[in-house]
Every structure is written in structure tokens, then in C-alpha cells.
Simulated scan of single mutants.
Amino acid sequence: MEHLDDATRTELEAAAFRRLLRHLNEHKEVQNIDLMILADFCRNCLSKWLVTAAEERGAELDYETAREFVYGMPYREWKEKYQQEATPEQLAAYEARQAEKRQAGESS
């Protein structure tokens, strides 16, 4: 994508991000813990990244506003409607993922 000018590249990146949010919204059955296990990020991470990006640019964006943008509704509402209790298998897989990260960090 180096052949694109900065404005076009930014527009494409923004469009891809919006599509990712739509995709996650269309697949509410995909739980945050599933994302954390498989990809090491979740909807909350996206929200935090938005807040960090805003801070880096001198813009104000609080975490709850960012989460409402990412979730498409207030987080509390999304959690009540769509968040399922993590299964013992999911929790074990998440802990194994975290242990792998800690071990990789120690060997670096």
C-alpha cells in the first residue's frame, strides 16, 4: 500500500476498521473471550486503542464512549443481552494463552 497517498491509505484503513466493527456486530455470538483466546484482542481492546489514538492526537475520547462506539450500544446493555458466561474450557484456554505469552516474554 506504499503506492497510496496518506489520505487514501487512511481512508482505506478507516473503512476496513468500520467493516471490522460491523462484522463483530453481526456476529455477537463471538464472545470477547473467544477473540482473546484466538487473536489476543477483543472489543474492549479496540475501545482502548481508540482512546489511545485519540490521546496521541490531542483529542478527547473517554473509554465508555469508545466502547459504545465499538459495541454499537452502551457496554452494559451489550453485556446484558449478548455476553455469555465463560465456560471452564474457555477459561482454561485463555489461561493457557496468557501463560504462553508470559513464557515468550521471559525467553525474549
Rank of each mutant, 00 (worst) to 15 (best):
E2T: 03
H3A: 01
H3P: 06
D5F: 07
D5Y: 11
D5G: 10
T8K: 08
R9Q: 10
T10E: 14
E11T: 02
E11G: 04
E13R: 06
E13C: 05
A15K: 06
F17W: 08
R19P: 04
R19G: 09
R19H: 09
L20S: 07
L20K: 02
R22T: 05
H23D: 08
L24D: 05
L24V: 11
L24N: 03
N25P: 07
E26N: 14
E29A: 11
V30P: 05
N32H: 08
N32A: 07
I33E: 02
I33W: 00
D34K: 11
D40Q: 12
C42W: 11
C42H: 13
N44Q: 15
N44L: 09
C45S: 14
L46K: 08
L46I: 15
S47K: 04
K48Y: 04
W49K: 15
V51P: 15
A53D: 14
A54Y: 08
E55A: 12
E55Q: 15
E56A: 15
R57G: 12
G58I: 10
G58Q: 10
E60R: 14
L61E: 14
E64Y: 11
E64K: 10
E64T: 13
E64W: 04
E64F: 09
T65H: 12
A66H: 15
A66E: 14
V70D: 06
G72T: 09
G72M: 06
M73A: 13
M73H: 05
Y75K: 02
R76E: 12
W78R: 04
K79S: 03
E80K: 10
Y82R: 01
Q83L: 05
Q84I: 01
Q84K: 02
Q84C: 04
Q84V: 01
A86Y: 01
A86G: 03
P88K: 02
P88M: 00
E89D: 01
E89L: 01
Q90N: 06
L91W: 00
A93F: 02
Y94D: 07
E95F: 01
A96F: 00
A96H: 07
A96T: 08
R97Q: 07
Q98D: 08
A99Q: 05
A99N: 06
E100D: 08
E100F: 01
K101F: 05
K101W: 06
R102W: 05
Q103K: 03
Q103M: 02
Q103N: 07
A104G: 09
G105D: 06
E106F: 00
E106Y: 02
E106W: 04
S107D: 01
